[in-house]
């Protein structure tokens, strides 16, 4: 499973991993490197310092804007992204944008897409977006319906692994052992329960839709390439973007991208692509790290690392989760260096 979607640029001095590279042909540079990028979410929004979702959403939508010649309508589920971008009287959006409810973004987007078809404007593309709660929980019914109908919608989930907007409660995307307001770090099994939760990318694949991908704010080029690719496809598409939340995770605001990177490099967040239900590519781990490297900087996992009494068993179970991902998606292989 080579990394074909990622632009195959072996370009020193920084290779493919920085946002820009003055040595690259302009058309091979990332959207984010361009001074003319849309800034789909502009300055003045009220996201917390170091918000991964604000970053991920701008990355994704700017890429979609470039891919479509700025013909994108965005539909937003209720959640942080909606609240921090559109508190009356200010909106940070620079593209047509509609917020309806928490659980219906996928359906609303289906409606927009249907309207564009009916109006004879199929070139206007529709992106629905929501957080993990709005996607994997309350919006799941509408999302599954949109997938099943193969409506011409790209749904992007910005996964920060809990209900952050309401004060960090558990969602079905919350990882095991994580402390949230509803899975507190108390008792003999602190944090979220092992063996729960759902893997939405795999569920999306089970719908047999043309395109499913996972991506991360830690790999801009990969994320942009996936959005760009998604915009070349008609039908239902799903991209699941990993976006750390300094507030909810108890991490330093400057560590947002670092944590996203460690999630990939530990194997806890596999980055892959699937077409019509089959995994076709994965992003190999470049510098493998133990899960501790990822867990330790986050206060939501602090109970695993109590001074002198680390929770060895449960750390091992989390490592097993990572190892299973590595095996399943073939994440450790020679082309690991990007």
């Amino acid at each position: 499973m080579p990394n074909e979607t990622v632009q195959p640029i072996k370009f020193y001095q920084t290779g493919t991993l920085t946002v820009g590279n003055r040595l690259l042909d302009p058309e091979k540079r990332t959207v984010q490197a361009s001074g003319e990028r849309t800034n789909a979410i502009t300055s003045g929004h009220r996201a917390c310092q170091g918000c991964g979702e604000a970053l991920g959403a701008r990355y994704a939508l700017d890429a979609a804007m470039r891919a479509t010649g700025n013909r994108v309508v965005a539909v937003n589920a209720t959640g942080c992204l909606e609240v921090f971008t559109t508190p009356y009287p200010e909106t940070a959006w620079q593209l047509p944008w509609l917020h309806s409810l928490f659980g219906n973004a996928a359906a609303v987007a289906s409606g927009v897409a249907a309207a564009m078809r009916a109006k004879g404007r199929p070139e206007v593309r529709v992106i629905a977006q929501g957080g993990d709660g709005g996607t994997t929980d309350i919006g799941f019914g509408c999302l599954s319906g949109m997938f099943e109908r193969n409506d011409d919608v790209l749904y992007i989930c910005y996964d920060n692994e809990a209900y952050m907007n309401t004060g960090v409660q558990r969602s079905s995307a919350t990882p095991p052992a994580a402390r949230t307001a509803t899975t507190p770090a108390v008792g003999d099994k602190p944090g979220n329960v092992f063996g729960t939760g759902k893997n939405l990318p795999l569920i999306a694949m089970a719908h047999g839709i043309p395109y499913v991908a996972t991506a991360s704010v830690a790999d801009l080029r990969d994320l942009e390439a996936k959005v760009q690719k998604a915009m070349t496809i008609r039908g239902a598409r799903y991209i699941h973007v990993f976006v750390p939340c300094p507030l909810g995770w108890g991490s330093a605001s400057q560590d947002t991208i670092k944590l996203a990177r460690l999630a990939i490099e530990s194997g806890l967040f596999p980055v892959f692509e699937a077409e019509y239900g089959e995994v076709v590519r994965s992003r190999a781990i470049r510098r493998k790290v133990p899960v501790e490297d990822y867990l330790k900087p986050q206060r939501r996992f602090a109970h695993l690392f109590k001074a002198g009494k680390p929770d060895v068993d449960r750390i091992a179970r989390l490592q097993a989760v990572a190892d299973a991902n590595i095996k399943r998606f073939n994440l450790l292989r020679p082309d690991g260096d990007a």
Partner: peptide, 11 residues
């Protein structure tokens, strides 16, 4: 390298 320009959540 444009990293700062790209990674700023606040543009």
């Amino acid at each position: 390298c444009d990293n700062c320009f790209g990674v700023c959540p606040d543009n």
